[in-house]
C-alpha cells in the first residue's frame, strides 16, 4: 500500500512525465492552447494510458513471456495502443461530438503520444506488479493532465501579452515550459521508492 501511494505521488509531482521525464511533449505543445481542449485531451489520455497499461501488462506476462516472444514486445504494445485509441475515438464521436471536434487530429495522435508507450514499457522494465502498473499508469497520466492544464492556463494569458517577434509561437511556449519545469524541480528528492 505504501509503495502504491508513493508511486502515485512520485509520478504526479516528483517525476512528472512531461516536465521532468519528457514524455508526451508533442501533444503538450500542440493541444495546450485552450483550457477546454487541454481538459479533453487529458481525460482521453488518462483513459487510454490506464487501459493500455493493464492490457499490455497482461499480454506481456501471460502471452509473450511463456512463449518466449519478448522480442515482439514493441510491435504488440504499439498495436494494442493503436487499437485502444481507435476505440476511444469511436466512443467519443458518439458520446461527445463537441469534444471530438475540439480534439481534432490530436485524438488519433494519442497513438504516437510517447507517454502511452513509455508507461507500458517502463511498467515492464521496472518489474511492477499488475496493481502497481495500473497505479503507475494512472499517476503518469494524471501528471500529464495536470501539466497540460497548467500550461493551457498560462498560454491563455500569454495570448493577451506582447511577445517579441522571433519568440512567438513554440519558442515562448518552450521557455514557459522550462520555467514550469524549474518550479517542479522543487519536488525533487522528496519521495523515493
Amino acid at each position: 500500500m505504501e509503495k502504491l501511494i508513493s508511486i502515485l505521488f512520485i509520478y504526479i509531482l516528483v517525476d512528472n512525465f512531461v516536465l521532468q521525464r519528457f514524455f508526451g511533449i508533442c501533444p503538450f505543445l500542440g493541444v495546450s492552447r485552450k483550457m477546454e481542449t487541454a481538459m479533453g485531451m487529458g481525460m482521453a489520455v488518462v483513459f487510454v494510458i490506464t487501459l493500455s497499461t493493464l492490457v499490455t501488462w497482461l499480454i506481456h506476462y501471460y502471452i509473450l513471456v511463456p512463449l518466449g516472444l519478448e522480442f515482439l514486445q514493441l510491435v504488440t504494445f504499439i498495436l494494442v495502443i493503436a487499437g485502444l485509441v481507435q476505440l476511444v475515438e469511436i466512443f467519443l464521436r458518439k458520446a461527445s461530438p463537441t469534444l471530438y471536434q475540439g480534439l481534432g487530429i490530436y485524438l488519433p495522435l494519442i497513438t504516437t503520444n510517447c507517454a502511452v508507450l513509455a508507461v507500458a514499457l517502463l511498467a515492464v522494465r521496472q518489474e511492477f506488479t499488475l496493481l502497481e502498473s495500473v497505479v503507475f499508469g494512472i499517476a503518469a497520466s494524471l501528471g500529464f493532465w495536470m501539466a497540460l492544464v497548467i500550461m493551457s492556463g498560462i498560454r491563455e494569458r500569454l495570448e493577451l501579452t506582447k511577445v517579441p517577434g522571433p519568440l512567438q509561437g513554440t519558442a515562448i511556449t518552450l521557455i514557459t515550459a522550462g520555467i514550469l519545469s524549474l518550479a517542479f524541480m522543487g519536488f525533487r528528492g522528496m519521495l523515493t521508492f
Binding site: 516536465l19 517577434g165 522571433p166 519568440l167 519558442a171 521557455i175
Partner: peptide
C-alpha cells in the same frame, strides 16, 4: 548544472527556435 537539467533543455531549445526564426526571416 541547469543546462543539463530538464528545465535547461526546454529553455535552450526555445532560444534556439527563436534564433532560427530570426535567421529564416
Amino acid at each position: 548544472r541547469i543546462f543539463a537539467q530538464p528545465a535547461g533543455a526546454f529553455i535552450v531549445l526555445g532560444l534556439l527556435l527563436a534564433l532560427t526564426n530570426i535567421i529564416f526571416k
